[in-house]
Design a protein around this nucleic acid. Structure first.
Lengths: 195, 195, 195, 195
DNA sequence: CATGAATGAGCCTTCATTCAT
DNA sequence: AATGAATGAAGGCTCATTCAT
């Protein structure tokens, strides 16, 4: 965890690279380190020095969203209402996924490029697990679900939003994400119906 | 619908190309026409003659699954129980998606390379719509869902299965798909709980 | 010169191929035998049977223009006014070149694909030679020009028209061709000036 | 006009690429960047880095001729004799076209790949225009010609030389070019003849 | 004679990554 | 540290021509 602090100019480059990468991600352009370097106005080598692979850069771009999610999760755990904490966390998760194009690939990737990413993903899984268990123990969850299903399901909701409609950045996307999450939570089937 | 029948030798190549493509799709290799040609043992031109683009080949590979799904859908419409028809169709849909790696890209693609694909997708949407309306009219669906949500939701379920675990072909995948579909239909939330 | 007469159906194909090729030339599409075959609705083999190479087809397409020019030339030779005969022939030549996109490549080509083309070109050279000599002997030509310069100069005029402006088919082209030919005949320099 | 100076090694490659391209142009081989790379002994990417398209390379190869022509034009404008300036410029122009196979395609191309090419072509047009107007105002030009005709006519002369005979590089070509230009300037028709 | 499937060399272009400067 | 030139494998696609049917 102890990283040698960057020299001031190096830190400045780091920031500019990440900012440009963020902009590229937002506009849907695939991250190419050559391209990033050109836009930042530094050499490719500099970008490679800071980020060994495109994935590392992408994970760095995604990190703030993951951090924010983790922070929210920590607060949700403190919520006295188990369901509200659980639901809120899931809502934030899908909001983040549909609002930040960097998240989907990072979340779905099998291997992480940065240890920090692995930590964050683990923390989120952990938080999700805690919230899940609290909810389950409170009896507000249907049986059959496990904590390990949460991440895939949230990715699924985000993907459904993707398939449904307009590209990242459209305001409707968040509404759709909430609708879809609501469906998953409440079920598509009318509650009074029993087979 | 009347296609000039291929000469015997051409038909043989067509079959071999599709077979190789199917194998590549199954092993997760991206479809590259040069590559396909090499593996089939024909010239690139032959592959291009049969399939103008990688998408056309992929859609051809995916077609049987789509056809089977459409056939099932036609039968489901005849099911006297609206819910069973609806649920069965969705189940088949996610099974297909999870069992055939060619489906996800074809389903998610905005533009189709082959008219047949467009027809099949339209037919599936149509069938889904009919089953959906029957279920809704029978009062077995929660309000707030629309027919246009079905396709995205099924894609979402399939994607969740993908994120969850083992690659295409694993038998567990179908079980997981059923579990996830069940969650979506019934809701994650315990039915007796009301906010 | 004795060609086995074609069977009726073969002759029909020959005609249709040439007609399609003419249309392609007129619209500026490069002549590709596969393409021609597709548009005619015959197999490539058939086209190849009739025309061994793209050049042979192009020369066949160009032939009528060359024939017409040759016929005009024969008449021009009979003109009692040597200058008028000469000038008229050149005018027709450049008109043909700017009006028929098939001519430029055929005229400029070093080797001919068809004997008929060689004959026609020779005939035109011959006619040009006669007209040239008549004009020269009548003293209406400046010294320094030779008969062998005529063909290149006419090609040059046609090319100048090409560089100048709108593509084949535009009515202005003929006017421009006449203007340029007029410049060549009369000279750019004011006639009263002597160095 | 301020271009970042290339690094020494890069400049060396640039030079070698242009030199090879020049040789290819001289021997009439069409410019293919892969081919150029192979002959220079560098990777394709290197050639693409320096010249984004074959046209850009060709224009670079042609540039010195255009520069020389522009320089000559600037001097010609200073010539006290309007006709001599005009004629000299045209003579240099056809000499250049006939001596450098890179010029014809660059001159005839509608769109330029390099801004420098556009500048040079504009400068030449401008110079031609000035020389033309001086000559016209001095009364040494026949009416009916416009400045916009000069470029096409010079291209036409060069093309006529091409059609006439031996390939680029042959010494006779220049002589022929002068002959043809002379014909254009003085007219093919004997001066004493009036219709 | 006609067919049209097959061929495959050939050309273009991109981009992740390395390494000399 | 930073630079950015160089690399070259990789992939895409076209088209003139042949030859089995």
């Amino acid at each position: 965890m102890t990283t040698t602090p960057l020299r001031k100019d190096a830190a400045r480059n780091w920031d500019r690279i990440v900012a440009v990468a963020r902009a590229l991600v937002d506009e849907g352009t695939p991250l190419q380190l050559n391209d990033v370097a050109k836009r930042v106005g530094v050499g490719v080598g500099t970008v490679y020095r800071h980020f060994a692979t495109p994935e590392a850069l992408l994970e760095t771009v995604a990190a703030p969203s993951l951090e924010a999610l983790a922070a929210y999760g920590a607060a949700a755990v403190a919520d006295p209402d188990p369901w509200r904490g659980f639901e809120g966390f899931l809502a934030r998760t899908v909001e983040a996924q549909v609002g930040d194009a960097a998240l989907a690939p990072v979340t779905a990737a099998g291997a992480d490029a940065l240890p920090r990413t692995t930590e964050l993903k683990a923390a989120l899984r952990e938080t999700g697990g805690i919230l899940f268990e609290r909810a389950r123990d409170a009896g507000v969850l249907r049986p059959g679900v496990t904590a390990a299903d949460l991440m895939p399901l949230m990715c699924g909701v985000a993907y459904a939003v993707e398939v449904h409609g307009p590209g990242t950045g459209d305001p409707d996307r968040v509404a759709t994400a909430h609708r879809y999450l609501g469906m998953l939570l409440g079920g598509l089937r009318a509650p009074d119906r029993r087979d």
